[in-house]
Nucleic acid binder design. Structure first.
Length: 769
DNA sequence: GCGGATCAC
DNA sequence: TATGGTGATCCGC
């Protein structure tokens, strides 16, 4: 009987406990899975998981059918292609960067434990009965982990303490650690509140030329081995902020007379009670704690240790870090010595190869539980297995995925951190107690649209594609989207579109009710809303300054009568002309000549180094489109230019896209190879009858306005605005992030990319003054 | 362009 | 009693 249930629980492979996470080694997995199974079985959620499991098993069967149909010749071909790819990849392997991944240990839980010492020796988790965000290391021993419902966690660990999340606090702590990150890499790339990638390459160059003084930091004396203990009477400010300047400026600290080898010993021997140091903190007025001085070396190990120590001194929280030549490896490394540890893979091909050999594929960011199982059916569990089975993988997966796998076998990953990029979508969704009443569903939809419109307005964004997401009470997820003719962030317009999408779904459930547990609305195809502050990225994407946000209302008309979309309601706020950009053939060689079951279409080529630079310019003068060397000197771009009505500044496009729109189309030749932008010449003004009235034309770069600005003058003016310097900066930026050299394989974008950096304004102290 | 799936956090 | 929210990407139409 128990055997049967155990089998039952293992049936849902994706529901089983995942001991991948740090602090979860050596658990009684069987017992844990049994408890999870007992708590879940029979639920709608469980049934849906079973369904998904069956689908996955079906996919595996199809995959195996495909594999078994491969002839020896085809396998040989796959092998040859794989080996050729691997050779090419090896040729462009870049080990010149030092990438660090820093990850706070059990972040939310650690913050809560820090602020409530009663939690310290208890199993605890942050979250609620329905979902946990994270758990502390004590709770992990019971199998309690992030993304687990609280009620199941309590079954695993009845003494578990659940703590409500406090995101305001986590955000504030995150800001503190980011200020430290910025001192080692001002362009660091945050992934979430608690982790970030840093490129320390430049820091290390400066560091090697720095004086010892720059590498001395204060450490609180620990009363216990594991963590800093602060009492209420003692200052808990960042010692390195409030006291370090005084300490290292002390005349008594005459380190120049001490040799580097003896410096740490000298620092240890110092008795600060003899020094003229403040006794109380100038910030909080509390007594300053006893401390020691630590000298860090110029090596990367010490740089990272220094950074982690400073984080701990400032936040009383520990971080782990991974050091490697690329982001993929650095991420794996940061997990290696968690918690409160670090691990390095040196930029050495042999060492990388050795490291990858026994690494489970699940450790790689981008390989989740589904891919793990899919690969498991091909006897692939370790990264080295990806190499062993490369002939099969060539046939069983898409070109992009195949390349991704081959890069993993070589330990390759991104060597540059993503720059700030514009977001691609914005959404809001809520889970709720079952709703089936259509009126209530529309009401919920309206709330979500209101929320979304507010967010869009706050972020000064407008979008074109509205998506509705629904999850039925049986956990079935559907998305339905509609692309408007115009960009908008108007609540009514968004709701009108979402309402129609919802109506179709409600109507499609014949003779019964659509029962939902979740609804969401998303806006994608975003453009920045115009403002006087013209950013380089947004300048050509600008819409009119006045958009149709005025008529917001909280009352909604649920009267659904039209069966089709009422396009009149979709007002235009921006009019972007279709780009006339020739899409050129890929510069990469086509590898998958024989299409496999899982790969029927060739993925579009990713930008290579050269075209990537142009691409970055294309991005802000037009939609992002591919452009190759061959058309570098003959590249058509589009731009939309703000046109405002003289009289009331209302958005002309907004009223009716066809009759009142005034479009300035610039099919201009732009010579990117000279790194300059040529005139927006040959621009044609397409105006409607109605727009013959006098109009203000604004320069899309500086915003200057003139009545009926002659195009040639406008072009000249824009030339001035778009100075050579600006373009050069952008090209340089792009160059820096693409130092791979031109290769005939898709660049690192084919790896799951580092998510876009959130906009963070951080005051960067100059570390090496 | 759309919808489903997968993934990360 | 009870299994999240946000954003991105890829694949196959």
């Amino acid at each position: 009987m128990s055997k049967l249930t155990a089998q039952g629980s293992s049936l849902i492979s994706t529901m089983a406990i995942n001991d991948n996470k740090a602090g979860m080694e050596g658990l009684n997995k069987e017992k844990i899975n049994q408890i999870i199974f007992e708590a879940s079985k029979g639920s709608k959620f469980f049934e849906n998981e079973q369904k998904k499991e069956e689908q996955l098993n079906q996919k595996i069967l199809e995959q195996q059918t495909l594999i078994s149909s491969l002839s020896p010749a085809m396998l040989f071909h796959g092998l040859k292609e794989a080996d050729e790819l691997i050779e090419k990849l090896k040729d462009c392997q870049d080990l010149s960067h030092t990438i660090v991944h820093v990850d706070m240990d059990a972040f939310y839980a650690a913050v809560e434990m820090r602020d409530d010492p009663r939690l310290k020796d208890k199993p605890m988790a942050v979250g609620g009965m329905s979902m946990l965000s994270t758990s502390n290391y004590i709770a992990r021993k019971y199998g309690v982990r992030a993304a687990m419902p609280g009620f199941i966690a309590l079954k695993l660990c009845p003494n578990l303490v659940l703590v409500e999340p406090n995101f305001t606090k986590y955000t504030s702590v995150s800001q503190e650690i980011r200020e430290i990150f910025a001192q080692y890499d001002p362009n660091f790339s945050p992934m979430s509140l608690d982790e970030a990638y840093l490129d320390l390459t430049e820091h290390l160059i400066y560091r090697r030329g720095s004086s010892n003084l720059c590498r001395i930091f204060l450490l609180r004396l620990k009363t216990d081995n594991s963590s800093i203990v602060v009492n209420d009477l003692e200052c808990s400010c960042d010692l390195n902020a409030v006291l370090r300047p005084s300490v290292i400026n002390l005349e008594e600290l005459k380190i120049n007379s001490v040799s580097s080898e003896n410096l740490q010993e000298y620092l240890n021997s110092l008795d600060f009670s003899n020094f003229n140091l403040p006794k109380d903190c100038q910030v909080c007025n509390k007594k300053l704690p006893p401390f020691s001085l630590k000298l860090y070396d110029t090596t990367v190990e010490d740089a990272v240790l220094e950074m982690r120590n400073r984080i701990e001194q400032r936040t009383f929280l520990t971080a782990s870090a991974g050091i490697a030549p690329n982001t993929m490896l650095a991420k794996v490394c940061s997990d290696r010595n968690k918690p409160n540890g670090q691990f390095q893979i040196h930029p050495d091909v042999q060492e990388i190869e050795e490291f990858m050999k026994n690494l489970p594929i699940r450790k790689i960011s981008g390989i989740g539980k589904v891919t793990e199982k899919l690969l498991g059916s091909l006897n692939i569990g370790l990264c080295s297995d990806l190499y062993k089975q490369r002939a099969l993988l060539y046939h069983a997966f898409s070109s992009l995925t195949f390349q991704y796998f081959m890069k993993i076998t070589l330990g390759m990953g991104s060597t540059s951190l993503e720059k700030d990029e514009e977001r691609k979508s914005l959404s809001t969704e809520r889970t709720f107690a079952e709703i089936s009443d259509p009126a209530q569903l529309y009401e919920k939809c309206a709330e979500l649209c209101q929320h979304l419109a507010k967010d869009l307005n706050e972020e000064q964004l407008m979008g074109k594609t509205v998506s509705l997401k629904i999850k039925t009470i049986s956990f079935e997820i559907k998305t339905r989207s509609h692309t408007l003719q115009c960009y908008t962030n108007d609540e009514k317009i968004i709701f009108n579109a979402a309402k129609q999408l919802l109506k179709v779904e409600i109507d499609s459930v014949k003779q019964s009710l659509l029962c939902l547990r979740l609804m969401g609305v998303r806006m994608s195809k975003l453009v920045p809303q115009a403002s006087n502050q013209v950013s380089i990225v947004s300048m050509f994407n600008q819409s009119n300054r006045l958009t149709s946000t005025a008529n917001r209302t909280n009352t909604h008309n649920f009267n659904i009568q039209k069966t089709d979309f009422d396009e009149k309601d979709f007002s235009t706020s921006i009019n972007v002309l279709e780009a006339n950009v020739p899409v050129l053939e890929s510069t990469m060689t086509t590898r998958h000549s024989q299409k496999s079951l899982f790969q029927k279409t060739q993925s579009p080529p990713k930008k290579t180094t050269e075209s990537g630079m142009k691409n970055s310019i294309m991005k802000f003068v037009s939609k992002s489109e591919r452009c190759s060397d061959k058309i570098a000197n003959n590249c058509y771009v589009e731009s939309n230019i703000k046109v405002q009505n003289n009289n009331n500044l209302r958005n002309l496009d907004c009223e009716n896209s066809s009759s009142t729109s005034l479009k300035l189309q610039s099919n201009s030749k732009s010579n990117f190879s000279n790194a300059t932008m040529q005139n927006v010449s040959q621009a044609t003004l397409i105006s409607s009858v109605e727009s013959k009235q006098k109009t203000f034309i604004s320069c899309p770069v500086c915003g200057q306005q003139k009545f009926d600005w002659p195009l040639d003058q406008l072009n000249q003016h824009m030339d001035l605005c778009l100075s050579r310097k600006t373009i050069k900066t952008i090209l340089q930026d792009e160059k820096n992030s693409n130092k791979r050299g031109s290769v005939q394989v898709e660049n690192d974008d084919s790896l799951p990319s580092v998510p876009k950096r959130k906009k963070t304004q951080i005051a960067v102290d100059s570390y090496f003054k």
